[in-house]
Amino acid sequence: MTRFKLANLIAYGFVSLFSIYVLMPIIVMVLTTFKSKREIFLEPLGLPSQFGLSSFEKALSVGLGSFMLNSLIVSFFAVFLIVTISGMAAYVLSRIDFKINKFVYLLIVAGFAIPPAAVLVPLYTMVSNLNLLNSLFGVIMPLTAFGIPFTVILFYAFFLDFPKEVEEAATIDGCTKLQIFFRIIVPLSGPVIASAAIFQTVWIWNEFLLALIMLTSDDFKTLPIGLLKLRGEWTSDWGAIMAGLTIAVIPVLIVFLIFQKYFVRSLAGLGK
């Protein structure tokens, strides 16, 4: 019995320690925001003596508001396009059975494997030649493309398990595949649409590399690129840098905590 208790203690101890490791940087970030410069240097482990808000003003002065707006626009359009286009393609792939199907499927898997870094130069050249550098449209288009393969795979698995009877009845009634998809399949696909949208929103909201090479003007920077400006502007003013991060991170954490069940569910499905 004592052995059992010891095992229990180790188990709780391990997850607790790991949780502290996870929480500690977030706590440091928030606390540093309120500390004075003096406190930051002299008492790294100490608490702030007062809740000063001057750091927030400095952080906002680099234009975090407009970076966030750009991120919202990019995320909204890219995720909408990814989910719509991927759902349509996955439905066809799961319902038709002919040679090209296998070829398209292999293409999709290849597309999933190719990282943006491996096609960086030609992609930059292409967007530059189209005169789309420093435009949100120019970054939404390639981001959409890179989101499609994974989302097709996610939808495909869902559609394979979809009961076929309703669709067969609809076909007899003379519906085309297009009508079946939009009138029958889409309304019944809420959970998988939510999963795909959550997954892609997290990815697009945080995407860095493509935005880095394509958005060099402050007017069009998304949040991850804009955050670098915090360090550029407030080199060793850690209070200002951490205030900027707090502004950027806390809303995402709140959204996550509200929807955490769905986040976890959509990620957990990957292993199946």
Binding site: F18, M29, I225, L227, L245, V252
Partner: peptide, 19 residues
Amino acid sequence: IIFTPMVISSVAVSLIWLI
């Protein structure tokens, strides 16, 4: 708690760990 950092952008994560 343990899943939380997954939703934070890697740039923000890097800057937090920088301090």
